[in-house]
């Protein structure tokens, strides 16, 4: 496309986009808010203390070899995939 046509197409799209964005008036969302430890994304709230501070490991010896004894029993069996139900067999590494 010639530069002028591209420019016109861009300008048209931009205008259309701006009319929708400003209609939703998403701008002053941050008024009166501050970033702090109290505001975090789901699943990240406990990061301030940090993983790795646990002493859970002292109660049992957990660190044993590489044999994969586990069978997947998670949600993969619920979400049907083209490759099957996600019922993983035990594997070795």
């Amino acid at each position: 496309m010639p530069a002028r046509t591209v420019n016109a197409a861009l300008a048209g799209s931009l205008l259309a986009a701006l009319s929708i964005v400003s209609a939703s008036a998403a701008e002053d969302k941050m008024a009166g808010k501050e970033k702090c430890y109290g505001v975090a994304m789901k699943g990240q709230n406990d990061c301030a203390a940090g993983p790795g501070t646990t002493c859970a490991g002292t109660s049992k010896v957990d660190y044993q070899g590489n044999a994969w004894k586990a069978v997947a029993k998670g949600t993969c069996t619920t979400m049907k995939t083209p490759k099957g139900m996600g019922s993983l067999e035990p594997i070795k590494m």
């Binding site: 004894k69 586990a70 069978v71 997947a72 998670g74 949600t75 993969c76 979400m79 996600g86």
Partner: peptide, 10 residues
Amino acid sequence: RIVGEAFFDE
């Protein structure tokens, strides 16, 4: 969650 705790831990 997808593979389950035991599998993920391995």
